[in-house]
Design a protein around this nucleic acid. Structure first.
Length: 695
DNA sequence: GAGCACTGC
């Protein structure tokens, strides 16, 4: 069991043995009880960032861009916007804005700042996330947003003129919207010398950020005569408030990391003092397997391992099950949380003292040549490994057990993960840039440039959707309408087309359902019951019309959660469908789409779906006995997914709206079509085809 | 008869 390492026999190593490690500051005891009894002002002064207050204000005043390297618990996110406010950056009706990658962070940071400033949330301090605007343009002076919302705001105000200082927090996470935002902010900066940027990043990305904002396409001496702040970015490091984390490496690579993780948990439980354990694995399968192994251990090994509670954690888990991990650990027990990457950044668990790191995670990769997205298990980066280890040092000194060797960590892991934008389909991102007037996509100054293949593929798709002209310029008004809709352009095209077909009400419902994960409850082992439930709504025309039946049933039940439960439908998903549908309805009206229902004429619904997804039309192979289809344009081999209502029905002509790529390419969400609709919907796309292919 | 890392507008 202990063949991988021997905790206690190895000399402890601290996280800071590596260049740019995460956690190496021990706070004085008075810090650790959170906000305690001290006055708010005293608490603010105790935060590590406080002693840099003057330095930060000076740098922001004199530099166009300031990069803040702030470790966990430095207080940068809540304090810097307040310092800026106190220094007068919000005077004269100007606004200080701070972006976050996640909605929950926006809400919690905004409410903390409002509390510290002693104001009502939504007045002087406010926030905006999708579906929720808690701000007042007349009085809000400090505002928190998701970076996606700020990008959307640029469609109305391309230079973001309201804002005096823009702080981009957690920039090192390199989400697609953060990267696009950084590229655009750099452009805005040239037009607005009075604007100040603060980029908050972990150590690993600070140099990259600085280089990005330094390098200029214009000649530097041209700018040096101009008055204003220094163009050269400033970098300031602020220490955090984590505790020491001792790192233990495996002595040799583990052949089976699930088994190794389980053994390690048992070893910690046996030898180490109280404290909860967090295990990082890759996905639901791994996690369920580990939970089962540990549960069996408790059953067979009785007393020795009885003192722990094993809990899985991943985003697909029902909400109530997820919340179990936040319940306090009973006295004398040890909580073992087996998690995906969700616990790396999105959720913070208190009370974790031991971390077990498998060294792997799942990442999505997009192949622009085949136009297929794949979920792949890959080794994590060193930055990620440090972040995971840091989760053990939040309440007191902790330990991290890495299920890989130190040599592997040092020599084979990359510094940082590949930015999302280099692993993604770019169609949505490029139409957004085009709408903002960025026409030279290949020449856009990205923090990390996507591959030319991916950019060209995205341009081809937009061209085929009829929104780009021969000069690759956005066609007005369709292109701009499409960019207004916050969905994949193929779905947006379907919505715009529904206007002519008189079925916008139905299509907007379908669009809302397609943009959530799944409307069915996620559970294994109840497949039969679920299939039966599905049959109650199944339409011969396919999954899209089935969605309409479900939505109708949900409305007729009075939006009842019991009705959902009875029919194996996820109530939270349906509520989300209602929210998205509401937003899409407002946007549709704004861009001139009449809300109209086709009542029971479902043929026009499928025609509208075809108008957006014509590229995904497939025909059943004539001599296929296993349900093999081929896409008409690319002759790619695809199959109907077993969860589709058309599974085993195998109609001759179908169209799909999403593809999952596992051992085969499975079409998910499939409708039957008449091939003549394809020529109607996209003559330019199918005119090269020989006519007999469409019979 | 199969399978879903994680965000976000």
């Amino acid at each position: 069991m202990s063949q991988f390492w021997k905790p206690g026999t190895e000399k402890p190593r601290l996280v800071d043995d590596e260049e740019g490690g995460v956690l190496f500051f021990t706070p004085s005891p008075s810090f650790s009880s959170g906000y305690g009894y001290a006055s708010i002002e005293k608490q603010r002064q105790r935060l590590p960032v406080y002693k840099y207050r003057t330095a930060i204000l000076y740098l922001v005043d004199t530099h166009a861009t300031t990069i803040i390297v702030g470790e966990t618990g430095s207080g940068k996110t809540t304090q810097i916007p307040q310092y800026l406010k106190e220094a007068g950056w919000a005077d004269g009706g100007r606004v200080i804005v701070c972006t976050q990658p996640r909605r929950l962070a926006v809400q919690s940071v905004a409410s903390r700042v409002a509390e510290e400033m002693g104001v009502k949330l939504g007045e002087e301090v406010g926030y905006t996330i999708r579906f929720e605007d808690v701000s007042n343009p007349d009085v809000t002076r400090v505002k928190f947003l998701t970076d996606g919302v700020l990008l959307r705001e640029m469609m109305d105000d391309p230079l973001l003129t309201k804002y005096s200082v823009i702080m981009v927090d957690e920039a090192h996470e390199r989400s697609t919207s953060t990267d696009i935002l950084l590229g655009l902010l750099k452009k805005i900066q040239r037009r607005r010398p009075e604007l100040r940027l603060i980029i908050s990043s972990a150590t690993i990305e600070a140099r990259l950020m600085s280089d990005f904002f330094r390098r200029s396409k214009k000649r530097r001496d041209h700018e040096s005569d101009e008055p204003g702040p220094q163009v050269e970015p400033a970098i300031l490091s602020v220490e955090g408030r984590g505790f020491n984390v001792e790192i233990n490496y495996a002595e040799e690579p583990a052949p089976d990391y699930v088994q190794a993780a389980v053994s390690t948990v048992l070893l910690i439980h046996e030898r180490e003092p109280a404290g909860d354990i967090l295990v990082f694995l890759t996905g639901q399968d791994d996690i369920d397997a580990a939970v089962q192994l540990l549960t069996e251990e408790v059953r067979t090994n009785g007393k020795k391992s009885s003192g722990f509670i094993v809990l899985p954690l991943y985003s697909g888990l029902p909400r109530a099950d997820q919340e179990l991990v936040f319940s306090p650990t009973p006295r004398g027990k040890r909580k073992v949380v087996i998690s995906t990457n969700i616990a790396e950044t999105s959720l913070t668990l208190e009370g974790i003292v031991y971390v077990v790191d498998s060294g792997f995670s799942k990442q999505r990769f997009y192949n622009p040549i085949s136009d297929i997205e794949n979920l792949v298990m890959v080794p994590i980066s060193r930055a990620s490994a440090r972040q995971r280890a840091g989760r053990a040092g939040r309440v007191r000194p902790g330990k991290c057990y890495r299920l890989y060797t130190e040599e592997y960590f040092l020599k084979h892991m990359s510094d940082a993960a590949i930015p999302e934008i280099q692993r993604s389909n770019l169609v949505s991102c490029i139409i957004q840039l085009k709408a903002l007037g960025i026409d030279n996509i290949l020449g856009f100054d990205w923090p990390a440039s996507p591959s030319p293949e991916a950019m060209i593929r995205a341009l081809e798709v937009l061209y085929s959707l009829g929104v780009l002209d021969d000069d690759a310029k956005l066609i007005s008004p369709t292109g701009f309408q499409m960019a207004e809709i916050p969905l994949d352009p193929m779905i947006s095209k379907m919505i715009i087309a529904s206007n002519q077909f008189g079925c916008s009400e139905e299509i907007i419902t379908i669009a809302a359902v397609l943009s959530i994960q799944s409307i069915w409850v996620s559970a294994r082992g109840i497949q039969r019951e679920m299939d039966e439930a599905k049959l109650r709504f199944a339409a011969a025309e396919g999954d899209h019309v089935t969605f309409l039946n479900i939505y109708k049933g949900f409305l007729q039940s009075g939006k009842s959660s019991q009705w959902c439960h009875k029919n194996f439908i996820n109530y939270h998903s349906m509520k989300k469908v209602l929210e998205i549908r509401g937003q899409l309805k407002r946007i549709a009206q704004r861009i001139g789409i009449a809300l109209k229902s086709c009542e029971s004429d479902v043929q026009v619904v499928r025609k509208a779906v075809t108008a957006g997804f014509f590229a995904n039309a497939c025909r059943l192979e004539a001599y296929s006995h296993n349900g093999m289809y081929k896409t008409i344009r690319g002759s790619q081999e695809v199959y109907i997914h077993p969860s589709s209502v058309l599974f085993r029905v195998n109609p001759k002509w179908v169209i799909y709206t999403s593809l999952v790529s596992t051992d085969k390419q499975y079409m998910r969400n499939v409708s039957t079509i008449d091939p003549s609709w394809l020529m109607e919907a996209a003559p330019h796309f199918y005119q090269q085809q020989r006519p007999h292919h469409l019979h």
